[in-house]
Simulated assay, not measured.
Amino acid sequence: MHALLILDMQMGLFHGPDKPWAGEALLDTLNTLLSKARSAGAPVFLARHVGPPGSPIEPGSPLTQLVPQLLLTGNEVVFEKNRPNAFATTDLAGQLKARGAEGVVIAGMKTQYCVDSTCRAARDLGFDAVLIAEGHTCSDTPALSAQEIIAHHNATLAGPFCRVVRAEDWHF
């Protein structure tokens, strides 16, 4: 069984000054994945990135709250992380194993940071890592457009680090 892991879909990133590329389409994809996971009885985890006390993203900050556009039921496991890799300094791996998950389907933000780091770590920890091709996003940078960053990561991560699958082709 695979669990769904949605990374950092929080107010400060999604509704911040640097708008994510194709944000509305991403929300639709994530809500479809949430529905598929619920229908299959797959566990759902949502990570919120927090910083140290006194920072703009300190625990409890409005900027770290999940976006209300996600169709959540309250049965999800919501946890805080303070590293790009969602497994670092959290009990995510243990919680996945406790729920019988052999794999993790990864989606959310931001492609070149937390999505990338978590995909790589999941495989290293023995999980079947699946990245949803259109299930992650970021903002443009001075060096590359968000579209280029997403395409690059889908191509680079596929194979050695994870399987890259379109949401419509994924079944929990």
Rank of each mutant, 00 (worst) to 15 (best):
M1D: 08
H2P: 13
H2K: 13
A3H: 02
L5C: 10
I6Q: 10
I6T: 04
L7Q: 04
M9T: 00
Q10L: 03
L13K: 08
F14H: 01
H15A: 07
G16C: 00
G16Y: 01
K19D: 14
K19G: 08
P20I: 02
W21Y: 15
A22Q: 15
G23N: 03
G23P: 03
G23F: 03
E24H: 08
A25Q: 15
A25H: 14
A25S: 15
L26F: 09
D28V: 12
T29D: 10
N31I: 00
N31H: 01
T32P: 03
R38E: 13
A40C: 02
A40Q: 06
G41R: 01
P43I: 01
P43W: 04
V44T: 01
L46K: 06
L46W: 10
H49G: 10
G51F: 06
P52H: 11
P53C: 02
P53L: 09
G54T: 05
G54R: 03
E58C: 03
P59T: 01
P59N: 03
S61Y: 09
P62F: 01
T64K: 04
T64N: 01
L66R: 07
Q69R: 06
L70T: 05
L72D: 05
G74H: 00
N75V: 07
E76G: 03
E76D: 03
V78C: 00
V78H: 01
E80T: 00
N82F: 15
R83C: 12
R83K: 14
P84L: 06
P84N: 11
N85G: 03
N85S: 14
F87M: 01
A88R: 15
A88G: 00
T90P: 07
T90N: 12
D91H: 11
L92M: 11
L92E: 05
G94T: 06
G94R: 10
Q95F: 05
L96E: 02
K97I: 01
K97P: 02
A98M: 04
R99C: 13
A101Q: 09
V104K: 10
V105N: 13
A107I: 09
K110L: 14
Y113M: 10
C114Y: 09
D116V: 00
D116E: 14
D116C: 02
S117R: 09
C119Y: 10
C119M: 05
R120F: 07
R123S: 12
R123Q: 14
D124Y: 05
F127W: 12
A129Q: 08
L131S: 06
A133H: 10
A133K: 10
A133V: 00
G135F: 04
H136E: 11
T137C: 13
C138W: 01
T141N: 10
L144N: 12
L144A: 12
A146H: 02
Q147D: 12
I150P: 09
I150T: 04
A151M: 03
H152F: 14
A155T: 12
A155K: 08
T156P: 04
L157I: 00
P160W: 12
P160T: 08
R163Y: 12
R163M: 13
R163L: 15
V164T: 03
V165W: 11
H171M: 14
H171S: 15
